[in-house]
């Protein structure tokens, strides 16, 4: 079976004063259009794994394939293009650009590939603001928003290009359970409407429950990989 994202024998060692191996022989394949959760205790290697999937980090050993293409054979510019067009990011620390308003931040991934925002994309942005219930802060700077509003703006930004893949690191870390449930519904809706593949790192049991598959990591190894059976 060939998935949209494949990891083969991925190992990661951080080299520092002491070398620290964080990931051990990870083999994973994600099917297009599925919703996946990665769980595990703090420090187990979730963010590291996600960064490798996102092409921002390289494995020390092993291969990553996206759309069947080997990532480490691509040039820097090809990778930038791939990230821009194929992957949407929700970072653990949301990382909005403080110089720009919520709307400008949301449009940024679109503006990176095309200079003028089209009417379509502006409409899509409006729709996302509405779905995430942050229309009120559309023109606010990120420094004038609550943590939860920032996080939801970051989610809208990840969704704006309707990428094939969404990588989200603790997307609901700052949110109450009601808003969290709302986000889960939004993810589901996007997943069903566009066939977007989601990989969500989360501690939140509620969020994990909403996905098709839960991968549990401990000390850099996969200790369980459960697919839900809807049939």
């Amino acid at each position: 079976m060939s998935g949209i994202i494949q990891l083969k024998q991925v190992n990661k060692t951080y080299h520092g004063a002491v070398d620290l191996q964080v990931l051990f022989d990870i083999n994973l394949s994600f099917e297009a259009g599925t919703c996946n959760a990665i769980t595990g205790v703090s420090g187990s290697g979730k963010t590291t794994l996600l960064n490798i999937i996102s092409t921002l980090d390289c494995p020390s050993h092993g291969d990553v394939l996206i759309n069947g293409k080997l990532v480490n054979e691509m040039t820097k510019n090809q990778l930038a293009r791939l990230r821009n067009e194929t992957i949407g990011f929700v970072f653990q620390f949301h990382h909005l650009l403080p110089e720009f308003t919520a709307l400008e931040n949301v449009l940024m991934p679109y503006l990176i590939k095309r200079w003028r925002p089209s009417l379509d994309v502006v409409r899509r942005a409006d729709e996302l603001f509405e779905m995430l219930e942050i229309t009120g802060i559309k023109h606010s700077l990120s420094t004038r928003m609550s943590g939860g509003q920032q996080q939801r703006t970051a989610i809208a930004r990840a969704l704006i290009n309707t990428p094939k893949i969404i990588l989200a690191d603790e997307p609901t870390g700052n949110l109450d359970s009601e808003t969290t449930a709302k986000i889960c519904q939004v993810f589901r809706a996007i997943n069903q409407r566009y066939g977007t593949t989601f990989i969500i790192v989360t501690h939140n049991y509620l969020v994990a429950e909403h996905t098709d598959r839960i991968i549990d990591i401990k000390d850099g190894r996969i200790i369980s990989d459960k697919k839900k059976n809807y049939g």
Binding site: N77, A80, H95, L97, I112
Partner: peptide, 15 residues
């Protein structure tokens, strides 16, 4: 931080 995020979102080195 901003440049890093822009790069993560796919701005190329030239831009």
């Amino acid at each position: 931080p901003e440049i890093g995020i822009l790069k993560a979102m796919g701005i190329n080195d030239f831009n």
